[in-house]
Write a protein that binds this DNA or RNA. Structure first.
Lengths: 232, 232
DNA sequence: TTCATAATTTTGTTATTACAAAAATCATGA
DNA sequence: TCATGATTTTTGTAATAACAAAATTATGAA
């Protein structure tokens, strides 16, 4: 971790709830969702430990957790890497996202206050701006924030954490094809439709809009991935 | 772990793919789903390590993994316990189960061969017998096997592992109220309906049967839990 | 050059140890 | 009897070291 844009602090900094393994875990996770590592990048325990300025034990535990939840993969008894894109995993995760994010959306839709609606509009503007300026990392970050702002409404923590794990599972491997993925203004239409349906207090319409967004994303991602696979 | 009915071997026995932490993880998991520990039972690292005849490191990693996926909970900075029953968690997990197990069922239904159907019938007979003889641990085990035999048909490993995590999240905490939960022949009707629908090659009917089973289970479990909470 | 094999380095795992902090126990006083 | 504070024990964490196994590099012959 170099001191560039992340909000994580120095190695074993202040109030990280203590545990170094938690610090290591969220550091790696942050870097994964920021697209710091390309698919195939190796993550040996000792390198990670050195980078984060911690011992081997917390680094090992963090890596193993990530492997366990599928954010990293083991390709050999002693080699874990950032996963390569995997169309069948993408399909699976998409199916699960439709089921679970649809559920969260529908359960929470009626609880949207004006504050939340305002927040969603602000986020959407940020996304649009980021896409125009080709700051894809920021766009991804805010897109996630848009979705989770809606999902949080249902107040189902177990559901939320399960969904988050799903995002992590494919997030990293698709980062490097984001430019071609985002050629069009990704998701704008669906997001606006979702906001409108929230205003209308129409849960199934919100769900439909979010599902559409997920499906659109899937199609574009799949296409971009296939083209890249063909090209190489 | 005493040598009764489990298939796990002695401490650091033969071909457990090597890792002691995996051995520890699956040992604890097995005991949790068998209902060995009552809710509230403490699991200190050193005790677990001694019981499994491994060092503190693999025991620690196993326990942390289980906490991470919600099968155990931390109630203090240095105390993890088997979770107490939690009605809102039960509700959440049930909603997720309906979405995800419904998905798995529907995707896999058309792939049921005669072998699978036979296997399901055999399992169902075992369940019925176990319930009659009040061997609730076995009944639970085979009930899980029934469900997962169907879910495996869709060949979606990510989905499978997510569903398994859900079972683990509530499994342990509801073990000690199984007797009152199972007063009636639990699930028989729904299971048979599912098998019939599989024979008919009717995916949505299979899904409906499985969802019914999940909902029935939820209602009974909730009722049993509420009665026990009232009584105490 | 290519492929198999040998030598070397890297790597994951685990037991151990030290330490600080939390939990449990005990003592004391009201 | 109960609360409160002090003491003792237990506990989780993380660094380290040792080891075996895997991964890598070097080497050699075809």
């Amino acid at each position: 971790m170099n001191e560039n844009t992340t909000e994580e602090e120095s190695p074993a900094s202040e109030l990280h709830s203590g545990r170094l393994s938690d610090f290591a875990y969220s550091s790696i996770k942050e870097q994964l969702t920021r697209g710091v590592y390309k698919p195939g990048h190796k993550l040996p325990i000792r390198s990670v430990a050195e980078m984060l300025k911690v011992g081997a034990t917390p680094a090992r535990e963090a890596i193993n957790r990530l492997v366990f939840e599928g954010a990293l993969v083991m390709v050999g008894p002693k080699t874990v890497i950032v996963p390569h894109l995997d169309l069948s995993a993408l399909y699976e995760v998409t199916q699960m996202r439709l089921a679970l994010e649809g559920l969260a959306t529908e359960k929470g839709a009626l609880r949207a206050t004006n504050d939340v609606l305002d927040k969603l509009l602000v986020i959407q503007e940020k996304i649009t701006l980021s896409l125009e300026e080709k700051r894809y990392g920021d766009a991804l970050h805010d897109n996630k924030e848009f979705h989770f702002t809606i999902y949080r409404l249902c107040e189902m923590p177990h559901l939320l954490s399960t969904i988050e794990a799903l995002w992590l599972r494919i997030g990293a491997s698709f980062h490097d094809l984001y430019p071609e993925f985002a050629e069009a203004k990704y998701g704008v239409h669906n997001h606006l439709a979702a906001i409108e349906a929230l205003v209308d207090k129409d849960p199934s319409a919100v769900r439909a809009a979010m599902e559409n967004d997920i499906r659109d994303g899937y199609r574009r991602l799949k296409k971009a991935a296939q083209e890249r696979l063909k090209r190489q």
